[in-house]
């Protein structure tokens, strides 16, 4: 089975959970092979890779602390045992300890209630963001036809940023 990303190899940091996971599955669904660097979510990473292999693509998890260039080099060496190229790099991993705004407590944000209310009332499309919606925007940027898109920041925010 072929797709627009057949023959491409993607390297998706933080691909074991959340947006990264949705992104890994979307790109694999479009034909890409996927390597997933993870920090400490070994089981989740292995489970995503298994799902991708079930789709007939190559996929492997590689352990790395992306804040440490030495372990990234080691991860790339491991990556090279399976793959001879990389076409798509998605730097998705975020600082551990970040939480969805809805899971934060007053400890994280003294004005949380206020911020949540503002997000709800201000966002034109409403507070309904899910990981797949971000993954779909990344998918656009991975397509061969998007070759002339370079530089801009594509907001997937329901219009929050332009509405204040």
């Amino acid at each position: 089975m072929s797709g627009p990303l057949s023959g491409k190899v993607a390297f998706i940091s933080g691909g074991s959970r959340g947006i990264g996971r949705a992104n890994a599955l979307t790109l694999a669904g479009a034909g890409a092979d996927v390597a997933i660097p993870y920090y400490n979510s070994h089981e989740e990473a292995e489970s995503v890779c298994e799902e991708i292999r079930g789709m007939g693509r190559k996929s492997m998890p590689v352990q790395a602390d992306i804040s440490n260039s030495k372990t990234v080099d080691e991860a790339l060496e491991e990556f090279e045992t399976e793959f001879d190229r990389v076409d798509l790099v998605v730097s998705n991993a975020a600082l551990r300890g970040l939480k969805p705004a809805t899971d934060m407590t007053l400890k994280h944000f003294p004005n949380r209630e206020h911020l949540l209310e503002e997000y709800k009332t201000r966002t034109p499309l409403g507070p309904t963001l899910v990981p797949e919606q971000v993954a779909d925007a990344i998918y656009l940027l991975c397509l061969p036809e998007s070759a002339m898109i370079t530089g801009p920041t594509l907001f997937v925010d329901g219009g929050y940023a332009i509405s204040g």
Partner: peptide, 22 residues
């Protein structure tokens, strides 16, 4: 291709954006 993306369900949470293809 950019127009197709913005027309489609793939951009369900994208609005008010100016997408440069330059």
């Amino acid at each position: 291709n950019a127009v197709w993306f913005l027309a489609s369900d793939l951009s369900a949470y994208v609005t008010g954006q100016i997408l440069s293809v330059d």
